[in-house]
Design a protein around this nucleic acid. Sequence first.
DNA 1: ACTACTCCGACTGAAACAGTAGGATAACAT
DNA 2: ATGTTATCCTACTGTTTCAGTCGGAGTAGT
Lengths: 133, 133
Amino acid sequence: MKLTRRSEYALLALTYLGRAATEEWVPLGRIAEAQAIPLRYLEHIVAAMCRAGYLVSSKGQHGGYRLARKPSEITIAEVIRLFDGALAPVESVSKYFYQATPIERETKMLAVLGNIRDYVARTLEGTTLADIL
Amino acid sequence: MKLTRRSEYALLALTYLGRAATEEWVPLGRIAEAQAIPLRYLEHIVAAMCRAGYLVSSKGQHGGYRLARKPSEITIAEVIRLFDGALAPVESVSKYFYQATPIERETKMLAVLGNIRDYVARTLEGTTLADIL
DNA sequence: ACTACTCCGACTGAAACAGTAGGATAACAT
DNA sequence: ATGTTATCCTACTGTTTCAGTCGGAGTAGT
């Protein structure tokens, strides 16, 4: 599980929105500036999070974005899975992104990697946006 | 830490050599066939492991490769670091590959990621080639 | 109508990944 | 000496991913 900028920006945007007033529509420009994220890139990221149901948007003047769920109901795991796929170090031990890989034959190795994937999944599924605010 | 084929092939080659007789020089062709690895690709991988001191080679007929150290003295962590770099999910929490990244500002987030990196590093540094044979 | 937003698709440069290819070099066998 | 079998070294290649950028369309409030 290697985090890309995409995921980092997504998490930063979420934290910003999590700290904003619940009612407020926050325009992207403000997030981009505050968190030093390229605006036009952030658009794509935020669009994906809308489709995924983490955010809702309002168009037009004084529009913007806000969280669609409570911060305590958005786990870090799902955000990272959305942008970077599997949490596992190898797809052979991935639960949601399983794929065969050459190392499968080595069962001891697989056990070690599986153990790691379990730890990562457990901690990231157990951590919500509310925890990091 | 996303494992690439490089690392997988490297580990497979190591396990093959680990199971061979200690004195024996194993030619690459045999490893490639046994583990289903493209020979010309494996050459690069093995060369890197020679330079790193995990393997020694013998040229010419009846030449090949063998382990330079005992299996119990080669950790999985160092192999993966050699080919895929940091074990950490983000360079901000990497010990050997530190680099600044945007998410650094979020200390709670950083703590979670740091915790993951520590777990991964600990288990992979604690697992040697001998353990997976 | 104007302005300030979101929304949508296409495009781009650079790097990484996963190989392939050609040939040089070295040791051993006959 | 010569041929065989192996390592070694450098360069190249196609594909995909990453991290953006760009132009413009749609929409809601003033």
